[in-house]
Simulated assay, not measured.
Amino acid sequence: MQREVDWIAEALERDPTKTQTGLAEALGIDKSGVSRMLKGRRRLKFDEAKRAAEYLGVSPAVLERAGFAEPEETYQAEPQAERLTNLYASAAGARGEWFLDLRRPIERRPQAPCFLGADLAFGFYAPDDAMAPRFHRGELVWVNPGRPAAAGQDALLIAKDSPPAETPAYLCVLESMTSYVYRISQYGVGGVREFSAARWRAAHVYGRV
């Protein structure tokens, strides 16, 4: 009998770059919650199913087949109030390394149309020119940590298991990636460097909005 979460388990098996840890971050829950969900001990909510599909790159049609079609009345009743996106403080380190303070936002901005469905999206001001001329000092950078970056895209490399008050990060071009290594470059710094995929994750960076 097909379970409502089998599509998630199948997507995780298909793509080695997608993990239960990454899925937990996309859903905003801990890894044990994902484990319980995959074992059928925790129900998957509709909004969680949408975020899981975005993280896993799964078609909305798969959600409908799994019984997650959004009721029409829910869509019509959705509030039209302006949604806001958090901006966090940032500081520059050496050789293009930045530090983000993710404890509390310094301000909030209206959510841009490209953020639709990206509940985890946030922004910060570039503290130096590590990625100039693509991104300049003081320019707003918007990132969705729930959506992994692909090779060839702008990405924010974020250290895993780091303190929220001083989270290391690199705004970069993701030159290539495997399940073990990220290779990145920065316009303003030069050179190509390698980072362990076990200790870092590459989050999607939005274009200018």
Score class of each variant (00 low, 15 high):
Y88G: 11
Y88A: 04
A89H: 09
S90K: 03
S90N: 02
S90G: 07
S90M: 10
S90F: 06
S90E: 00
A91Q: 07
A91D: 05
A92L: 02
A92F: 04
G93L: 07
G93P: 02
R95E: 04
R95A: 15
R95K: 14
G96C: 07
G96E: 04
G96P: 11
G96N: 04
E97R: 15
E97F: 14
F99E: 03
F99V: 10
L100E: 14
D101A: 08
D101Q: 03
L102E: 11
L102P: 12
L102D: 06
L102C: 11
R103W: 14
R103G: 09
R104Q: 14
R104H: 15
R104Y: 15
R104D: 11
P105N: 13
P105K: 14
P105V: 13
P105Y: 13
I106K: 14
I106A: 09
E107F: 05
E107P: 06
E107H: 07
E107I: 10
R108S: 12
R108M: 15
R108E: 12
R109A: 09
P110K: 06
P110F: 08
Q111P: 10
Q111W: 10
Q111H: 14
Q111A: 15
A112S: 11
A112G: 08
P113I: 05
P113V: 09
P113K: 11
C114N: 02
F115C: 07
F115E: 02
L116M: 07
L116I: 02
G117T: 01
G117I: 07
G117L: 05
A118V: 01
A118S: 12
A118E: 02
D119Q: 15
D119R: 15
L120Y: 02
L120Q: 12
A121P: 01
F122W: 08
F122L: 12
G123D: 00
G123C: 15
F124R: 10
F124H: 04
Y125W: 13
Y125I: 04
Y125C: 04
A126I: 06
A126F: 07
P127V: 04
D128K: 07
D128T: 03
D128H: 03
D128P: 06
D128A: 08
D129M: 00
D129Q: 03
D129T: 03
D129K: 00
A130N: 00
A130Q: 01
A130E: 02
A130G: 14
M131K: 04
A132G: 01
P133I: 05
P133D: 09
P133Y: 09
P133F: 13
P133W: 10
R134P: 12
F135S: 01
F135W: 06
F135K: 03
F135E: 05
R137N: 04
R137S: 02
E139P: 14
L140V: 13
L140T: 03
W142Q: 04
W142S: 05
W142V: 00
V143F: 07
V143I: 10
V143W: 03
N144W: 05
N144M: 09
N144L: 07
P145T: 02
P145A: 00
P145D: 03
G146T: 10
R147Y: 11
R147H: 15
R147C: 06
